[in-house]
Amino acid sequence: MTYIRSTFRHPALPKNELGYTVDYYEGSLSTLCAGCGHDSINAAIVEACWQLNIEPHKVAKLSGIGCSSKSPAYFLSNSHGFNSVHGRMPSVATGANLANRDLTYFGVSGDGDTASIGMGQFVHVVRRNLNMVYLVMNNGCYGLTKGQDSATADMGSKSKSGSVNLFEAIDLSSLAIELGATFVGQSFSGDKEQLIPLMKAAMKHRGFAFLNVISPCVTFNNNVGSTKSYDYVREHVQVTGTVDFAPMMHEITTSYEAGSVNDLLMHDGTEIRLHKLAKDWDPLDRISTINAMQKAKAKGEILTGLLYVNQDANDLHDVLSTTDKPLNSLPQSALCPGFEALEKFNASLR
């Protein structure tokens, strides 16, 4: 645990288009265990927001309960955050978003928070295509309650105490695609190069953007035999070699090998570039994605990158036909029908 952060900032720290250096996007000091995957993801969030030139106060950070859900305190200290109730972040995000459609909603959850107690709310927020980023820091266990198996722990995976998980794992990404999620990405906390562009694309997506990020728990689930350990994940990501479907903001270059390229225009006019390396798999085609994921599962591989994207679906505001102005900004004059209308109403009740 690093409790003391140096206040020294290199004077030549680069600035983004808004004139902010990256530290402007940081949060308070993390109290997570040293080496916890969640901290790397938080660092990636900071970097992604800085690169995207986002005004931090135009972001709302929401979470449930868990080590992962503490994260909103650790990035974007100029954003409002809500560390809410275990498994209920989706509902809070839904209400918040309905109240003010102009903010960017960044939700952080854990695998326990999402796949167990929060499963009901998760599936429904997907269905509603709420315009938000929903990031699961997936470590296959309940970190904050000291390491119990979660519902995303693979069958046969061994915990630190040596017990073997006997239940089928819930694959959140497949589930999200099944339920009609319009943006689904998968990544690994240790792969910043992939994670940052993926997050940026997710924030640019209008609709529900789901990011399932494997994020090892160094304290309770990083042992030999665990399928969510750093070693295991690194090996299996490398072995399958499918870290190739990261969307790129056009101004960003990466070291990913170029293959066939597909530029995708986001709603605000920015583009993401899909580098497509696998045959028979088009992230714009849901069926091909589902097939690829089923095949990977059979082979024990972890697919990472942008798995699926659909830019054309209506988000919740479209469906409800809400006004373009944030509901929380409407003046009393637009809301209250007033005395005269009430008198007419009374007359209809006699």
Partner: peptide, 21 residues
């Protein structure tokens, strides 16, 4: 919004009120 249950219903209400509606 017709929520999935009452937990979600009150969660949405709190989210909206928290955000100034």
């Amino acid at each position: 919004v017709q929520a999935e249950d009452e937990l979600a219903a009150i969660g949405m209400v709190m989210g909206a009120c928290w955000n100034g509606a």
